[in-house]
Design a binder for these strands. Structure first.
Lengths: 162, 162
DNA sequence: AACAATTAGATTGTGCACAATTTAATTTCC
DNA sequence: GGAAATTAAATTGTGCACAATCTAATTGTT
């Protein structure tokens, strides 16, 4: 866990009249996540991946041979989500799953040749999403930082809840 | 549909080297959506709702008696998602589903007394999420507008893809 | 009236997402 | 060295999410 900066939380949760849908940041983020999914679909269909599978591939393209645990920490997903997803990627010939020799509890995930080739293909395919981000007119660097700050604050609250 | 301002899209999708996970706004939004879910969980557990069910209740609390179609347009969800979700809400006694008398293809969704009472209860329960948003230090009004602008740009791209 | 086209929901099948539990391997502590 | 605690994955069960398909009702056209 990062960000144990000791700064006290500003206040406690309190009862409040329920806000309408359109004033809620949570719905904006929720629906934006769906919109990303839709915008990515044609690009990912060319690669034969779903969006969560693409995220796993991004993690492996950054560093091959990671454990399920390490992938899960990177993506904030648990084994109940990753195990079947990784089995599908293995079934499609993009990765191999093998028990660690040193610690046999671990499962190490390695790219196959096809998995590495897909990295090149992804780089050559037209990705519509960065353009859409640009179209939105929102400065990407600032938005990235704001959404990350929001996520971290939410995770701190969730962890503090009990 | 809003925002048909006639402004041409700035450029077409192009091939680009694949960016790392941490530079991608899509992953920031995706993981922030999960973080909202986690932060909401204890609040929603008190109400006996999941997050998507809470969204449906928000829509009905704003206006009772809407059709499945209208709810779906508001939340950007289709009948394959809503039908079983609404049946669960009906099973829990929060709503009633009845065929429209005027147009029998429609199913109208109405709050029960328990569903209305839950609105009051939601208003009295401590909601940790606004506090977390405040903790993040990001100006909420600006963030809301930026995320919405992003979503609309993504949906335009997705619609234009083919 | 009659028939095509459209529309509203429901259904089916695939794939996340996560809580809770289980199994097996490893580490810790004595 | 051996029992207890911890850890890594897998499994099970519930609930979204959406594409594709199906059924039934309505609307439009002739």
């Amino acid at each position: 866990m990062r960000a144990a900066d000791g700064k006290a939380m500003t206040k406690d949760a309190q009862a409040q009249p329920v806000r309408g849908l359109d004033e809620q940041i949570c719905f904006a983020v929720y629906s934006a996540a769906h919109a990303f999914n839709r915008a990515y679909r044609p690009f990912l269909a060319e690669l034969g991946l779903t969006y969560p599978q693409y995220l796993v591939m991004l993690v492996l393209w950054e560093q091959d041979g990671q454990s399920v645990k390490a992938i899960g920490e990177r993506l904030m997903l648990d084994s109940g989500t990753l195990t079947p997803l990784l089995k599908r990627l293995e079934g499609n010939g993009l990765i191999l799953r093998k028990r660690g020799r040193e610690d046999e509890r671990q499962v190490l995930v390695e790219l196959t040749e096809a998995g590495r080739v897909l990295h090149e293909k992804a780089g050559r395919s037209a990705n519509p999403v960065p353009c859409a981000v640009e179209d939105s007119g929102v400065p990407p660097a600032r938005l990235l930082e704001e959404v990350r700050a929001l996520r971290e604050a939410l995770l701190r609250r969730a962890a503090a809840e009990d």
